[in-house]
Design a protein around this nucleic acid. Structure first.
Lengths: 356, 356
DNA sequence: CTGTTAGCGCATTCAA
DNA sequence: TTGAATGCGCTAACAG
């Protein structure tokens, strides 16, 4: 079944293709009578204009790219849904790209998105400087940075108040009486992780505690499962996200410490999962043996044992806001810098006063 | 900065556009010397062929559509990631569409996907007969049904063994000694839900228990929060998925029963969340007051209180398989019907022998 | 071994 | 108030 073209409609309606085009796009006046003829023909033929052909001539595809780390990461699925919902209202479609934090994958996706002539881009960059991203900016493709800063790139950023959230989390622990507070961080190239570390540091400094380097743990997703197999049997995770096992392994040394910390601040939800499994495997009880507070809430958190105390961030809104900003950029509306979205401490039961 | 075109490359390399096209696509022999000239020009100009223009002439876009209910549903995010990973290996991109189970949204998305000339479609249909979907099939767009059957549509289905999984879950409860076993189902238009109900029914029948209609609960997502506001204060869910509150409300009558069931089989993960919140709000303890088994596992499940006993389904593989089937369809390879993917009972601690 | 040219399906300028 | 003709950037005959 061959595709119905605009010319088929024109012939059936007894008009020119120009007229058909104009009634479809409402781009110049057409006499009501002929307009109806055209509309009827369209209906009868079930005509659907080709977005491809249209894109070629208008130089716009009504498509945006969304480059994130991993759609299976609950944080990003909520964000993605926010982007999608907002952008759809304006007739745009989204191409999803999972980088898994690999700069090379990021680059490859950007190449493809450019080839596909996207009208705009929302990206949570891996953080590694990207020549291609700069070129896209130079080619005047509207870009919005999502969640993470990208030094050297002149694009608006939509993020949450990471530093403040981390500060509040840490201060909460301090107020409960904790002194030895560990922090579990992910990749340092990600500005979000740095911001959260700085919030932690500030709170420790403000309390006169300072940062004990032995309590700062970095989870490295490249540190694969195999390397520690002999030491600790790895739990089976369904997700193929490397951040979770990385956290699991990174924590082993910390938990081996004679002078174990009494509390830990975990800087994202994927690492929280690894942390909980590590505690469980050692038979450590949270919060009795160790208090736990983590960044990012979700619907399951209150059902955990114990219910998780978290810093909640407005994930869905983050996505919506980024998309809405991109719309403005794409329609040449003025855009001013945005304040970070507020976060909120949600106290449940995974933190308690330290023993003794 | 104007876009670099194939002609710019041709001029710079001192050849025709045809030659440039052929070295890019390796579609006819080009003398090594000229080939290098072209490659150099491409490199120097940072030339990126326009996928749009190419699509117009080749009548293929290297894009597929993925129509699901909600990317924020953990089941579908895993599936989506599977589809994405597989399809990317073959150079295809994915446009995601969330129907939220609304036939109207489904229709609108299908319209847009058709306009965008997708090369193939993976769809978990709402189940409502779709004229447009049939037309797409008639237009010979390769289609793979994901997870759910669509009567009247001649397209291969990739699903899991829902009936068997539900059977095993129910039999497990029966073997524990339960007699009054409730089932919580979602929309009846979704074949998956029906299959699971049938598995439940079969197990009950085989055990000589039969199905007690008062223990069959249907969660209806259209039954919005407002309608029961006065009766029960709704919990605040972060997700905007309606299935979760729907389950929460649907369960109220069941839990009000004088002769409450001693166990419940919940037919998907979104409803499990609502169920757990409903139990929690009433101060009902699982598994002491009521045993719970549900369909679909995830990484958080073992960390719950209690750790959830579930029927695990291979979500990621489901997506991969669907995509791989679509690839075959799109490349005219022969395709034979696929057996449902196997599921697995994962026993944790949310089920116990009934009291007394 | 390479170049010329005709469209792909549409929006849009210029004429009428 | 409408039509004819041009070209978006590319691939694929056809020609040489």
């Amino acid at each position: 079944m061959a595709r119905v073209r605009i010319q088929d409609v024109a012939e059936r309606a007894g008009v020119s293709t120009a007229t058909v085009s104009h009634v479809i796009n409402e781009t110049r006046f057409v006499r009501e009578e002929t307009r109806l003829k055209v509309l009827t023909a369209i209906e009868e033929l079930q005509y659907q204009p080709s977005a491809i052909a249209r894109g070629l001539v208008t130089n716009s595809t009504q498509t945006i790219g969304l480059v994130i780390s991993d759609i299976a990461n609950p944080f990003f699925t909520a964000v993605a849904r926010g982007v999608e919902d907002e952008i759809n209202q304006y007739g745009y479609h989204t191409i999803f790209c999972n980088t898994d934090e690999a700069p090379q994958r990021e680059d490859e996706y950007l190449r493809l998105l450019f080839a596909r002539q996207i009208d705009g881009l929302v990206i949570a960059p891996t953080g590694v400087p990207s020549e291609r991203l700069n070129r896209m900016a130079a080619a005047e493709i509207p870009i919005v940075l999502l969640d993470r800063q990208m030094p050297g790139l002149d694009a608006p950023l939509v993020n949450v108040d990471n530093k403040h959230g981390a500060y509040e989390a840490t201060r909460y622990l301090i107020e409960l009486g904790h002194r030895r507070i560990a922090v579990l961080m992910g990749l340092e190239t990600i500005s979000t992780q740095l911001d959260r570390f700085n919030g932690y540091k500030q709170a420790m400094d403000d309390a006169g505690l300072g940062v004990d380097d032995s309590l700062v743990v970095h989870a490295d997703p490249r540190f694969s499962t195999n390397q520690l197999n002999q030491v600790v049997p790895p739990p089976n995770f369904l997700t193929n996200n490397q951040m979770t096992p990385a956290a699991f392994y990174a924590l082993q040394a910390l938990l081996d410490l004679k002078d174990r910390p009494s509390a830990i601040f975990v800087a994202n939800n994927q690492m929280t999962l690894g942390t909980l499994h590590a505690l469980k495997q050692r038979g450590l009880c949270c919060p009795d043996d160790i208090s736990l507070i983590s960044f990012d809430d979700h619907d399951w958190a209150p059902l955990f044992s114990p219910p998780l105390t978290v810093v909640r961030q407005p994930t869905y809104e983050l996505g919506k806001t980024a998309a809405s900003l991109l719309i403005k950029l794409m329609t040449q509306q003025p855009v001013e810098p945005l304040a970070p979205l507020p976060v909120e401490l949600v106290v449940r039961q995974s933190c308690t006063r330290p023993a003794r």
